[in-house]
C-alpha cells in the first residue's frame, strides 16, 4: 500500500514524518506543497486535508494530519527498526519532550522565523491578494498566524518573549543532553527526529546561544543525527536555502 506524503521543506512539522519514514525504511510518494504559494489552501489539497495544514499522510484510505502522532503511526504501522524505546518510562519521556518541542519551543522559534522569513517572502504581493489568501484559510488559528506574518503584526514584546523562550529552551535541552545521549534517554527515537527538525538550524539562527562553546552537547547531538543516512536523504529533498542550512552541521565545515 503506497504512502503519499504531502509536505513542504524538510523543516519543522513537514520534516517530522519525512525523517521518521526514512528512518523506518519506508518509501513514500512525495508531494511538495509550497507553503509560500499557499498550495495548502488550494481546493485540490483541501480535498485531502480540509483543515489546510501540512503535512498530511495518506496510507490506503487513511488520512493523517497531526504531525507528531503521524510519526508514531510511521513506527506502529510498518516493519522496520523500532523508532520508540522499549522501556515505557523512556517512551513517556520521548512523548513529554515532543510535546515540549511542539507546544513551547516551536511556537516561539517559529514566531521569529515567520517574522524574518515567511512574512517578508510573501509580503510584497498586493494587499488584496494577501487578504484573499487569508480568506481561503479554513482554521481561525491559522488565519490569525498568517495575518500576523503577512502584515508584520508581531509586537516587539512578543518577539522579545519568543527570543527569551528560545534561549531558555536551548539551556534546558543542553542540560538534558548532558545527562542523556538522546532525548528519550539511552535510545535514538522519534523524540530526536522531532527535535532535529526544530533545531538543525539553531546554530545559524541563534549563533550567540547555540554553539560549540555554550551548547556542546546540542552541537554533537545535531551532528550525529545529520550524519545518519536518513537525514541526508530527507534534507536532499529540500528546494530552498532554508533546508540548505543543514550543511552547517558538516564536521569539516568549520575545521
Amino acid at each position: 500500500m503506497t504512502v503519499r506524503l504531502y509536505h513542504w521543506e524538510p523543516n519543522a512539522n513537514s520534516g517530522k514524518p519525512m525523517l521518521a519514514l526514512a528512518e523506518k525504511g519506508v518509501d513514500f510518494e512525495s508531494h511538495y506543497i509550497d507553503l509560500l504559494k499557499f498550495d495548502q489552501h488550494q481546493p485540490d489539497y483541501l480535498k485531502i486535508n480540509p483543515d489546510g495544514t501540512i503535512p498530511a499522510m495518506v496510507h490506503g484510505d487513511r488520512v493523517l494530519t497531526e504531525s507528531t502522532p503521524m510519526m508514531e503511526y510511521a513506527d506502529d504501522a510498518f516493519d522496520g527498526p523500532p523508532l520508540k524505546p522499549a522501556d515505557p518510562k523512556e517512551r513517556w519521556r520521548m512523548r513529554w519532550w515532543m510535546r515540549f518541542f511542539d507546544s513551547y519551543f516551536a511556537p516561539s522559534a517559529s514566531m521569529i522565523g515567520w517574522s524574518i522569513f515567511v512574512g517578508p517572502a510573501v509580503r510584497q504581493r498586493p494587499k488584496e491578494e494577501l487578504e484573499a489568501a487569508i480568506a481561503r484559510i479554513p482554521l481561525e488559528s491559522r488565519r490569525i498566524a498568517w495575518r500576523k506574518a503577512m502584515f508584520n503584526q508581531f509586537s516587539e514584546a512578543e518577539l522579545a518573549e519568543s527570543k527569551r523562550r528560545v534561549i531558555f529552551c536551548l539551556g534546558i535541552v543542553e542540560q538534558h543532553l548532558a545527562r542523556h545521549p538522546w532525548i528519550a534517554g539511552r535510545t535514538y527515537s522519534l523524540g530526536d527526529m522531532n527535535a532535529f527538525n526544530l533545531g538543525y538550524a539553531m546554530p545559524l539562527a541563534q549563533p550567540d546561544y547555540c554553539n560549540d562553546a555554550k551548547t556542546p552537547h546540542i552541537m554533537e547531538w545535531l551532528r550525529k543525527i545529520y550524519e545518519r543516512p536518513a537525514a541526508k536523504k530527507i534534507w536532499a529533498l529540500g528546494r530552498t536555502a532554508m533546508a540548505q542550512r543543514v550543511k552547517f552541521l558538516e564536521r569539516t565545515a568549520h575545521a
Binding site: H59, R62, L64, T65, E66, T68, P69, M70, E72, Y73, D76, A77, R99, D102, S103
Partner: peptide, 17 residues
C-alpha cells in the same frame, strides 16, 4: 490498530490544545 492509536494521540493533542 495502528490507525486507531493515531486517532487517540491526535485526539489528545487536539483537545489538549
Amino acid at each position: 490498530a495502528a490507525y486507531d492509536l493515531y486517532r487517540a494521540r491526535a485526539s489528545g493533542q487536539f483537545l489538549g490544545a
